[in-house]
């Protein structure tokens, strides 16, 4: 009896760590587009970068419950770090990526202490404020950032000394996709770990989390720092693959867009950001072809509708669908848990 239960417990817990067939398919298809959709590599590159950015927001919003209206701060810092390094002659992409990650992580670590306390509104304002301050700095320090004209003269060297960036964006896409995939694996690992479980508990009920002995603040600082590094890397990828950085990377609409992307795809299951990025870009393509200037109107409308229709419910549905596909390999004799566990 009790060994039966033990087996069940282990199976249930460990299952979440296992990759489902849907997930494997997802990444296989992504890899296949490297060969089959060569004319789309520029836009695919953008999609992957936005997806990574949204994934990083998911880490703090979906897994730790921290609302942010200023996530672009880290994205922008990463972009500028990588861009400035490359302009000043350090052309190795991976070096730039590393530097961007570190810079963003540092900023994330320092500012994380500002979002530990206070209500959602305070958090929104503080994150927004941090992004605004950064935008203001980037604007004023034009000797460093090029100010409103943007950062020009970025020249990237080959990746690992082997792969030169090409004008079709194939190298760029392959590069971004690989980096994103590696970071995804890491994130996926983290969210099914005990650490990830403790994050979810904090999001659900911080009071109780403390009562279970979880050092809530330390955990939040850690995840905020990590998410900042992710966002920084996403920004760096954008700078390196487009070889241009403008103040736009720190703009409010960046923070708002990434929120929208994540909301479209669904919060709290890691794939939300990636799926949201695909939907977002495709929508943007379709709508822009139709009414290029007023694209923003339709974004707004989509947001309003999503919220009114019940964001949580929609997400739940996407997640269930996703589980249907992704969970197929998990041959479980037991009934699936009624909680569609937050992760895949």
């Amino acid at each position: 009896m009790s060994t039966n239960i033990a087996d069940h417990v282990r199976a249930t817990l460990v299952r979440r760590g296992r990759w489902g067939i849907g997930e494997i398919l997802f990444w296989l298809i992504a890899a296949a587009t490297l060969y089959f959709l060569p004319e789309r590599h520029l836009i695919l590159n953008e999609i992957v970068i936005i997806g990574l950015f949204a994934l990083s927001l998911d880490l703090i919003l979906g897994y730790a419950g921290i609302v942010s209206l200023g996530h672009a701060a880290f994205f922008g810092l990463g972009a500028y770090t990588a861009g400035i390094l490359a302009r000043d002659g350090i052309a190795d992409p991976l070096l730039g990526l590393g530097a961007a990650a570190i810079a963003a992580a540092l900023l994330g670590f320092v500012t994380s202490f500002l979002v530990l306390r206070g209500s959602d509104l305070t958090k929104l304002m503080v994150t927004l404020g941090v992004a605004l301050v950064l935008g203001e700095i980037a604007n004023q320090a034009s000797w460093l950032t090029g100010g409103a004209d943007g950062l020009q003269g970025i020249a990237m060297g080959p990746i690992l000394g082997l792969f030169e960036f090409d004008i079709f964006g194939t190298t760029a896409y392959g590069y971004s996709l690989t980096v994103t995939f590696l970071l995804f694996i890491l994130a996926r690992r983290i969210v099914v770990s005990p650490y990830g479980l403790s994050l979810r508990s904090i999001r659900d009920n911080p009071l109780k989390a403390r009562a279970v002995g979880i050092p809530v603040n330390r955990r939040l600082v850690a995840v905020y720092t990590l998410a900042a590094a992710y966002a920084g890397i996403a920004g760096a990828l954008l700078a390196q693959t487009t070889q241009f950085v403008s103040l736009d990377v720190l703009a409010f609409h960046r923070s708002a867009d990434v929120m929208l992307v994540l909301v479209i795809g669904g919060v709290g299951y890691l794939y939300g950001g990636l799926i949201g990025a695909i939907v977002f870009k495709v929508l943007q393509d379709v709508i822009s072809a139709w009414t290029p200037q007023y694209w923003q109107f339709w974004i707004g409308l989509i947001l309003v509708i999503i919220v009114l229709a019940g964001r949580e419910r929609l997400t739940e549905r996407v997640r269930v669908l996703w589980k249907g596909v992704a969970g197929r390999t998990a041959k479980s004799p037991e009934t699936l848990p009624k909680t569609s566990a937050r992760e895949v």
Binding site: L124, M259, Q293, Y294, F297, I299, L303, I306, R311
Partner: peptide, 27 residues
């Protein structure tokens, strides 16, 4: 309808309205 919702929902909703208003006035 949104008074009882989370702040995140309220923020998303009202940002959506802002975007719509901006584009509509522009138009």
């Amino acid at each position: 309808r949104l008074y009882s919702r989370s702040h995140l929902d309220q923020v998303l909703f009202s940002i959506g309205l802002v975007f719509m208003a901006v584009a509509a006035v522009d138009y």
